[in-house]
Design a protein around this nucleic acid. Sequence first.
RNA 1: GGUCCCGUAGCUCAGCUGGAUAGAGCAUCUCCCUUCUAAGGAGAGGGUCUCAGGUUCGAAUCCUGACGGGAUCACCA
Length: 597
Amino acid sequence: MGIENQLKTSVVKAVKELYGAEIALESIQLQVTRKDMKGDYTIVVFPLLKVSKKNPVETGNELGAFIKNDCQNVSEFDVIKGFLNIQLSHAYWIDFLNKIGNDDSYGIKKVTDESSQVMIEYSSPNTNKPLHLGHIRNNLLGYSLSRIVEANGNKVVKTNIVNDRGIHICKSMLAWKKWGEGQTPESTGKKGDHLVGDYYVRFDQELKKEQAALIADGASKEEAEASSPLMKEAREMLLKWEANDPEVYALWEQLNKWVYSGFATTYETMGVDFDKIYYESDTYKTGRDMVLGGVEKGVFEKREDNSVWADLEKDGLDEKLLLRADGTSVYMTQDIGTAKLRFDDYKIDEMVYVVGNEQNYHFKVLAILLDRLGFDWGKDLVHFSYGMVELPEGKMKSREGTVVDADDLMAAMIDTARDMSKELGKLEGYSEEEAEKVYKTIALGALKYFILKVDPRKNMTFDPKESIDFNGNTGPFIQYTYARIQSIGRKAADKGFSIPDCIDSTTILSDKEVQLMSMLANFPSVVKEAGKVYSPAVIANYIYDMAKEFNQFYHDSPIAVEENEAIRSMRLFLCKSVGQAIKNGMWMLGIDVPERM
RNA sequence: GGUCCCGUAGCUCAGCUGGAUAGAGCAUCUCCCUUCUAAGGAGAGGGUCUCAGGUUCGAAUCCUGACGGGAUCACCA
């Protein structure tokens, strides 16, 4: 039985014996004691006054005395106002540390054959332009989420749906064909996704020019948009693509190949990956079949013009188009098809979509539609809805060139990490290659932590200047703490001290040491909470607190240089445990920790 | 206009299943490297938790309303 339940059980017993009342275990308010107060756990006595019929302090004292007597792990208690603060014995904490100290996967539950399987969709890029800051948040959240879900003992399938089809793709294809002069990533030395992205921008520029010319000739804005030859050409290209025109198809394949190789590099740098990638070009037809099947089953309605609709009025929503009059699919159709294929491929107990909150409505509708089509999990699908990333000067707008490119951002941060590291002279003795690896670890750690530490559902402001700061509440601060712990281990080894496998139960502990152990003890429940609310931020803030706490301990307690052997051993063992928890927590964020920095 | 989300220090954010004196980081100002990594530690200043009601022994946290900001309501994706 865990300590929290021991304490609660003891309270129930106390209430019964002292006041003759039966209370439910769950009704007891037990919390971790505030850091600035003496004690490890706190029982809030206010709710118990009804049965004790005494004042808070008196009740607290009576309960405290009983519990101290009843529960052997309790060594002290004191009552402040209506709060009963309980202190556990040092022997309890040492026993706790001995239990977890040698567990490399502390905080991470084992995945077994019986575990549920959770599919997590994230990233989902368009193949007409490179990844930007918004995608970074998506990718980091999705990846971290997959780790957190796994750490909670679930099997995870990471998946990506690539939006490789549609008019936007044709725009870059057309522009490259018209003005590309056969340029390739090799001939330009450009990453494939950037090259294709350039032509997407080019299309937009040329289109604007064309429309401006039409308007100058007296056409209205609407007329200009409707009659633009470029747009017409793009639409024709889409039709040809759908009809499998060999030339268009070959062009599409070539540009996509470039984009995919560009994306692969970006994903690699970012440190994310997928177990299974779906392509919209493969799923949209299935979606169309599903919708037509729905018409036959009578759950959708076909109109005179051949368009297909879902009536969502009884769900309090509007009508939703599922197939256009010309039979082509829309966004929703594709998601239905993708869902079908996924469920054919995997046994999925839970489906999580990591998609921005601007699509809340879309997923609300999707859940209803999947449910109507007979997917058991349809109405239970999880839309992990995260907020937008804004810049200090406002929203990112691709047309105004205020988009922060993912590759540029990561490269800039690696440069900063390199400069700073060299200036501090921390990596002397490392080869160029080893040092580069550390720079990258630090840079990506800073970026990932910066983004993951904020509550995912909130909009966040990304200040490039601030993200490059490696001091304070940052990824590098935590990485540094980890590196420090490793350094202590090396120092101890140099002096011929080894880290013990367990420590003696009579060792005396300082308040700070108990505080650290108590924080370590919370790790599993933090992981559980993060999994429940799908929030990497919960993990991030927890590790930060732990690192901060450790640095205070480090500052005023000698560890490897401590003279007393029992204390030195205990501290080394504690260091190791904290290091492991930091490493595992960072793993859940998808952040690596360096041995030196 | 309907629906949904957000509003906490100058800035960026924690805290929100109701509990003790509302916490960090950045920025500003002090101090600490002849003990293990100063990417660190200690301290100071900075708050009517948007506002107004309500529920409660107790509200930043729950409820209602207002104000401010955002998203969405396409035969776009």
